[in-house]
C-alpha cells in the first residue's frame, strides 16, 4: 500500500464520520420530505466507491451492477434490513436505483490495505476460500464468488478487497438469519456452519486481497 493511499484513506474516514451522522439524523427525524435527487452515498461509500472499512461500510467500486441493484431493491422493499440504507433506498425510484448501481459498478477506487491477519487465520481463510471444509460441509467460497473472490456476474459479489469488517458483519447477519435476501438461502446455509474463528479468518483473508482490476 502506498503512503498516498494510506493518507487518503485516513482522511476520508475522518470526513465521512462527521458527514454521515447529521445526514442520518436528518433522515430519521424527518421521513416525509421530498427525495433528494442524489442521496449522499459518497458520505459513507466514498467519492470513488472505496467504502469505509472501519465503519463496516462496504466498498462498492466495480461491484456487479446486478448485485448492487438487487441490494438497493431489497432495501427499498424491506427484504434486506439496514436502518440507514433502507431509508435512502425507499426514496429512490426503481430507475434511480438502477442508475446508482450502474454508477458504482463503473467506478474504480484504490485498494485500502486492511489490518494484518495472523498467519494461522490467513491460512484458514485461504482454505475456506479455495477448498472449503468437509468436516463442516462448507464448500469453497470461490466456487460461486469466482477465482480469488473476484465476483461472478450476475449474482455473486466480489469479495477480494472488500472491507473485512463489512464481510464479517455480513456473514454474521447471514449466520444469525437477520439477513435473508440470499437466493435459495445459499449464504445462510454456509454461514450457519461457520464459527467466529472462521468468520474472522475468511473475512480477513478476502480483505487482504487486492481487488480485481478486470
Amino acid at each position: 500500500m502506498s503512503a498516498y493511499s494510506r493518507a487518503y484513506s485516513g482522511l476520508r474516514v475522518g470526513c465521512i464520520m462527521t458527514a454521515v451522522l447529521p445526514c442520518l439524523l436528518a433522515v430519521n427525524a424527518a421521513p416525509g420530505p421530498a427525495p433528494a435527487a442524489t442521496p449522499p452515498c459518497e458520505a459513507c461509500h466514498g467519492a470513488h466507491g472505496e467504502g469505509m472499512a472501519a465503519a463496516h461500510v462496504p466498498r462498492l467500486a466495480g461491484q456487479s451492477a446486478d448485485y448492487l441493484q438487487k441490494q438497493l431493491d431489497d432495501y427499498a422493499q424491506g427484504t434486506r434490513d439496514n436502518p440507514i440504507m433502507k431509508n435512502f433506498a425507499k426514496e429512490l425510484s426503481g430507475q434511480q436505483r438502477a442508475k446508482f448501481a450502474a454508477r458504482y459498478a463503473s467506478m474504480s477506487a484504490p485498494y485500502i490495505a486492511q489490518s494484518a491477519l495472523s498467519a494461522a487465520s490467513l491460512a484458514r481463510g485461504h482454505q475456506l476460500a479455495y477448498q472449503g471444509d468437509e468436516t463442516k460441509r462448507v464448500q469453497a467460497c470461490n466456487g460461486c464468488h469466482g477465482p480469488d473472490g473476484i465476483g461472478v456476474a450476475l449474482a455473486a459479489p466480489y469479495l477480494a478487497g472488500q472491507s473485512a469488517e463489512y464481510l464479517a458483519s455480513a456473514l454474521t447477519a447471514f449466520r444469525q438469519g437477520t439477513r435473508k435476501n440470499d437466493a435459495g438461502e445459499l449464504m445462510r446455509s454456509v454461514a450457519k456452519r461457520l464459527d467466529d474463528v472462521d468468520v474472522e479468518a475468511v473475512s480477513g483473508y478476502f480483505g487482504s486481497l487486492e481487488p480485481s482490476t478486470h
Partner: peptide
Amino acid sequence: RFTVPQFQSP
C-alpha cells in the same frame, strides 16, 4: 472422494 476437496470448482 468427498465434496471437499475432490468436487470443488473450478
